[in-house]
Amino acid sequence: MTPETDEIAQTEVAPAAAPPEGVRVWDLPVRLFHWLLVLLIVSLWITAIRGWMTVHYIAGVSTLVLVLFRVTWGFFGSTTARFSDFLAGPRHVLAYLRGLRGGEDQRHAGHNPAGGWMVLTFLLLILAQATIGLFANDEFAFKGPFAEWISGKRSDLLTRIHVFLFDAILVCIWLHLCAITFYVKVKRDDLVRPMLNGSRTAAQVPKGQRLEFAPARRALFLLLAVTIVIVLLIVNARRMFE
């Protein structure tokens, strides 16, 4: 099922002029993913500090499902959700950053070239973090569902990596917030509101760009598929490696 074959996929075209009404750029799955991820990371941080490992585990698995869904949505989702839309080569990224410095009018309906790589970095880091967490332990009584597959020493090592990776994620979150602030305050380009309501002003979107939106049921199907795979993997963890 792809946007090309999906009959109910919708298309939004940015007007050539710049009317005040918004142009839809982010689909609901991307926006829900973003804000759910924010909630999950905050809850993961709190539960790790407080030692609420059962909640931490559930939140961690949920994060893994969510990120894997986002990866699949990056291939089968709407235009602005696709990796092919926002992952540019190094030259494009450098040119974009140079243009940013020079105050050029650079419009992107979805992620800009620099932001695209930040998204990929986030996805990879969180994916690694959530996966490693399955092999980690809390150094007391809690073990991840896959921790039994490996030696205690390796589990301890992965636990240390788990802690280190979270610091790396925090640094990335901080860079992300600094970048958002730069766009909002210096460039006067509000990136937050579109992530809430899905729309940007026509002035923020390249003129005439066609954006296709995948149907919500496709997102539900992918989310369900990823959930089933992860849950089956965890439930059968012991049996598979015995």
């Binding site: 305050k185 210096v186 460039k187 006067r188 380009d189 509000d190 002003t201 002035a203 923020q204």
Partner: peptide
């Protein structure tokens, strides 16, 4: 690209 017309930061 400001919506509220507030002055941009340097």
């Amino acid at each position: 690209m400001s919506r509220d017309g507030a002055e941009a930061w340097s």
